[in-house]
Computed example of a mutant assay.
Amino acid sequence: MTFDFIIIGGGIAGASAAAHLSELGTVVLLEMEQALGYHASGRSAAMFEENYGPPSVVALNRASADHHHSANGGYLTPRGLMLVSGPGQEQHFVTHLKELQLDEITFREAQDLVPILNPKTVTHAGLHMLAQDLDTDRMIQDFAKVARAAGGSIVTRARVTAIHHTDHGWRVEAGGQTYQGAQLVNAAGAWVDEIAALAGVAPIGIQPRRRSMAQLPAPGGHDVTQWPMLMGVGETWYAKPDAGKLLVSPADEDLVQPHDAYADDMILAEGLARYEERVTTPVTRVESNWAGLRSFAPDGSLVLGPDPAKADFIWCAAQGGYGFQTAPAAARLLADLVGGRPSELDAPIRAALSPERLR
């Protein structure tokens, strides 16, 4: 069977692209693992924070807000974001306070919300309650449902082994099957440059960067469910309540090769130590740990749209740590570009996201 679109990659990028491109034609999505969202998308501590990211990402965040709030009953639950700093970090604190549009609060106000904050090491705190948790699994599954309802196919355990450009588009060999398609969408996360190489398309210089996470029992037996997400100045660590436990990350960004990522014990220990500096309850047990790969273009913005040298090769790449919060608007933009439709995003933002900027 011949499809209008072959999408490679079953994370949030590929699933959202499948939903929106199914408005324009027939879609098949190929995922190399046994389920959607296996790699970075399934290992995300996803939040919706409109002010987080470079200007092009913030524009996508804001254009995605209505979907997050209202589609399928909404995907958001209240969380809040608290920034804490220590001695000697005052200048950085002021900068981040402004960037994230937080309000400075007193230590007592901060401690009322997070009782384990250490009065000896936390000198300043900022807060807003606009940041919200995202239901990541339901988002992926709902986008997949839209694609299937439009007649799209989603194929798992379909590792791509060969890609050929033909007179009629693309022929992709994956999982022992051959797929024909007019246009090829590269949504393969950390593997997008490898897919481009198979297709004979110049890479974009993707940079897969590891992000590690540790799951801790609720510190001191506290009920953490209403705590805001905590972030250290400079994003050198963060902690986020999750299902009655606490997720702590060193916010690492080590450049690695594409692989099924796992946490580095030393890096994780360093991040936990930075978290411990700001709290009164030491880490005595790590229940589990994992890592995902956040993939960036050299300039930190997403890469969305047809390749300038091969217009039927479409990039949906470099989501970095912003994939879930930008997905609704990013996928709409992709479909608008492919379908020749006007976009809700202005020209400078579209240019900042275009593959042409990297050529």
Rank of each mutant, 00 (worst) to 15 (best):
D299G: 05
Y179I: 08
S22L: 07
S16H: 00
R159D: 13
R285V: 08
S64H: 01
A144L: 00
A110Q: 04
S56L: 09
Q180L: 13
M213H: 14
G37H: 00
Q101H: 11
G181Y: 04
P342W: 15
Q34F: 09
S212M: 10
G181H: 06
G220W: 07
A317E: 03
P342K: 07
G151L: 06
D135C: 03
K120R: 15
S56N: 14
P87V: 09
D112H: 13
E99G: 10
T2Q: 14
L36I: 00
G305T: 05
H67Y: 15
P298Y: 00
A197E: 15
R211D: 03
T284A: 02
V172R: 05
Q132G: 15
M129I: 13
G321N: 00
R62W: 13
R274Y: 08
W290C: 04
H165A: 09
I140P: 02
I154E: 06
P78Q: 15
H39Q: 14
Q91S: 14
A149E: 06
W290V: 06
G73I: 02
P55V: 09
R148S: 06
F324P: 00
G74Y: 05
V122C: 02
Q111M: 13
I140K: 01
V185G: 05
E50I: 12
L304M: 12
T225G: 01
D265I: 12
F143H: 09
M129K: 13
T156C: 14
M139T: 01
Q91V: 10
H168E: 11
T178Q: 09
A335N: 09
A335Y: 03
N118S: 14
H68Q: 13
A147F: 09
E356F: 06
W191K: 14
L293E: 01
G9I: 00
H96N: 11
F313L: 01
Y38K: 11
V84N: 08
A150W: 10
L358M: 07
A35W: 07
G234S: 07
E50G: 12
T95H: 15
A18D: 02
S85N: 11
A131P: 02
L246H: 00
G220A: 04
T95E: 15
A311F: 12
P282S: 06
G200R: 03
H124R: 10
I7K: 10
E99N: 13
E31H: 06
T284I: 12
Q183A: 13
P306E: 11
S212P: 04
R108V: 13
H68S: 07
G234A: 05
A352Q: 12
E344K: 15
F107C: 07
N61T: 05
I140L: 12
A45K: 06
T136W: 11
A318Q: 00
G221R: 09
G300P: 07
V286P: 01
E23N: 12
M1N: 13
H164A: 15
A331F: 06
V256Y: 02
A309T: 11
N118E: 01
Q132M: 12
D312Y: 02
L333Q: 05
R332M: 07
Q89T: 07
A71P: 12
Q91H: 09
A162L: 08
D254V: 14
P250S: 02
I163S: 04
D66L: 08
T121E: 06
L83A: 03
P328T: 08
K310D: 15
G205C: 03
D346E: 10
H39W: 10
G234V: 10
G42Y: 03
Y275L: 02
A174C: 10
G88R: 04
P241I: 05
P208M: 11
